[in-house]
Design a protein around this nucleic acid. Sequence first.
DNA 1: GAGTGGTCTAGACCACATT
DNA 2: ATGTGGTCTAGACCACTCA
Lengths: 242, 242
Amino acid sequence: MAQESPTFSPLYRQIKTLILQALEAGEWRPGQAIPSEQELAARFGVSQGTVRKAIDEIAGDNLLVRKQGKGTYVASHNDPRALFRFLRLVPIDGDLSHPKSVPLDCWRAKAGQEASRMLAIELGAPIIILRRLLKFANKPVVVDEIYLPGELFQGLSFETLQDWHGSLYSLLESRFGSRMIRAQERIRAVAADRSTSEALKVAEGTPLLSVERVTYTYGDKPVEWRRGLYSTAEHYYLNELN
Amino acid sequence: MAQESPTFSPLYRQIKTLILQALEAGEWRPGQAIPSEQELAARFGVSQGTVRKAIDEIAGDNLLVRKQGKGTYVASHNDPRALFRFLRLVPIDGDLSHPKSVPLDCWRAKAGQEASRMLAIELGAPIIILRRLLKFANKPVVVDEIYLPGELFQGLSFETLQDWHGSLYSLLESRFGSRMIRAQERIRAVAADRSTSEALKVAEGTPLLSVERVTYTYGDKPVEWRRGLYSTAEHYYLNELN
DNA sequence: GAGTGGTCTAGACCACATT
DNA sequence: ATGTGGTCTAGACCACTCA
């Protein structure tokens, strides 16, 4: 059963890979339940405990959500608990109100040096650029400039964005089948330029957080690159270190 | 065995608590191996699998480190793999050299409003304040101002800091028995003041990251509060989002 | 070879949600 | 009552480390 020493991979990891492949292939849709552990055990010809351990790891990566007594579900950005899952910005006074996204612009362009590198696409490939404002308690706090590979999101338009009630990622998941799994942020401090200062209603030159994010789908494929400028007058970026 | 509905706690969690208590009581020192799973199972009167699950969770919190074939060890900040475990700053060019800590100042004071709140100690209680520089490739990148409760770190002096070769946390662990377990950082953007700009060799007013960290030991007890000012000219703060 | 953590199994039973 | 995930056990065997 098990392989010889150099490339040993336990059974439950092989099962994990099989389940991930099924997820990636879209065999089960976001928000839906996957088969029970017993069924999967039968399908893969292993014991329930082995399937369990595979699912445990996948759930640990937030790709599946276990619900005792009900089943195991494919994680979705439509889930209210996953809303703004990647946003780490918090009001200084513990006001827990959800932010509101206000689209500003949306246009098409060709990928330049930076965009092509970040999104791992050809130089000059079509991309979509969109700008938006994030408001907390109706006050502007973040300006985002978001770059998406044009190929994946053909029908995306300014109107689509305005009509959508929910997060951007839930839109990209529901309408375009792209599921954002993990992201990496690079944070620096910069001075507000003219247009940013106007959008955020701060003085020109005010120090802002520059948060560059690359977001990945299955197979560590980058599908979004964005830069956000955060006003930290009344908010901070909260990070837990373990 | 198991309790009735409202306060149900599985056996392995109770075992987890017992192991955590032993850790907190210092029954096993950092860097040393804890008893084998079999021994612990015998000691607590449960099966090895139950102990295993308890240890799994504790290891997931980075309090224990498993080493196949050898044993399970108490995590230590002396471990080279844990060095600068909480530091998220990375050079823009992938230079992986370790930073070097240069102590600047160290004095005693009484806790003010902010320090007493952050460290959960009495207003006016003795604290130790220390300032230091973090250098990457011999260039100053971070100025830290660090607040410690005086009661816990009696003998700490500027000389101690200078003589110590290792991280601050390994010093606090080895000499004072305080083990830093987790931390929380609040990040904002600020303008460099006069003295900071001189220390970091940047222009006055340059945008910097202000990183405020509270660090906790066992029982979520805060034992360190610090503010770091990060120059992000050639470095960025890297954060993985899952 | 002995000891440790790591994997895998099979079965019993518990907690939870739904019918 | 049924089905789901969650816990617990006991035993067998594998992979790794070290003497």
